[in-house]
Amino acid sequence: MSKPCPLIEVHQLERTYIIGAEKVRALRGVDLTVYANEYVAVMGHSGSGKSTLMNVLGCLDRADKGTYRLNGIDTTRMSEGQLAHIRNRQIGFVFQSFELMGRLSALKNVELPLIYSHVPFWKRRQMAKEALNRVGLGQRIGHKPNQLSGGEKQRVAVARALVNQPSLLLADEPTGNLDSATSEGIMKLFEKLHAEGQTIIIVTHEADIAARARRIVRMRDGQIVSDLSAEQDMTRQDGHRLGIEGAAR
């Protein structure tokens, strides 16, 4: 069996921000390959460049140097409109602060991406209901965000991300605003989606959240410092800790 075409192929990605007179090199030559149906956690401290990487992977931002192929298509030279199209069809975002529209019901919130992919309204409703069923919120479609708990809100956001059947689900600190019990529920949901074949990239700084992924990518100062399977990563971290503790002792 030949190797399948990678979903994400990132080569020597660089991104520099100019904040005032200062240049911030957020990404300094990142190489990353992700295949379909992988479950990847990107870890790193704030300022490590993980958010920038996520923005680039999510086509919200463009790299200054390097190439980014999504499903074999080079996105580096795409126009704003083409990137919007990719975000709409290929990528589902889940944000830390849910980003639901307060005036709209759960159903209408989930329908939002479909509006921009020109799906007729009768199909929109059906597709949004299916997505809500998938995240286990089939009974609460008429509720507005302020009538939902934090976990439910995040589920609505996940449903919104899934509604267009994207090839990639990008979650940025999806449990950052949730208590541990609710976080657990969301992580279980992610595992279920992964089992159903969804490719997931989750950006987090919490080790126990990252540990739920199959593969962990660690970043520091705009570079990838380690890229291991979850088990290998854990062993190595334990080794580190032991080492540090040993040194302290």
């Binding site: 999510g58 919200l60 704003e80 919007a84 975000r87 975002f93 980003e99 529209m101």
Partner: peptide, 16 residues
């Protein structure tokens, strides 16, 4: 502004 950001993230083109 946040709503606009979200709409763009889920695929609204500038024209929309």
């Amino acid at each position: 502004t946040r709503e606009i950001g979200l709409r763009k993230a889920v695929g609204a083109r500038p024209g929309a």
